[in-house]
Amino acid sequence: MEERPHIRIELVSDPIYLSGARELVGSVARRLGFDDRQCSKIVLAVDEALCNVIRHGYDRATDKPIWVEIWPLRTGGEISGMRLRIEDEAKQVDPSRMRGRELSDIKPGGLGVHIIREVMDEVVYERRPERGMRLTMLKKLTAPGRKDKATAAAEGVS
């Protein structure tokens, strides 16, 4: 059985609450051991995921539910990262279509899913059994001195 989330919040799909969700995720990530740069990227990924739910899932309706859940990851008793889950009751889409656009195609919009996949170590979109979508993201702590995935990609390091 899945461990209960350590944090679970429900917010309505109004963009004015995005800042509160960002504050929560950022402060938890920091407490779990991520450095400032990693925290910024985790916050960005979660923000993009919430924006996608509001913009595309709910067509900007501001009164629909969104749930955010957080678990710490543990390896040998030590915290090794965090897992986040975002669920909604929005229209369901084929998870295989949740891909970001090519970065070489420079145009406004369409960056959210790319950012999420770039920042997080694991990203799984799925339909919820009843209705809506579920996004589960996993971010591992990187050892001191090692670059995380997004930083390495931005610097052209493989």
Partner: peptide
Amino acid sequence: NERVRAIFEIARLHQF
């Protein structure tokens, strides 16, 4: 700042 610059780097648009 660093946080804002990060999104440009992730999207690889800092050179644009």
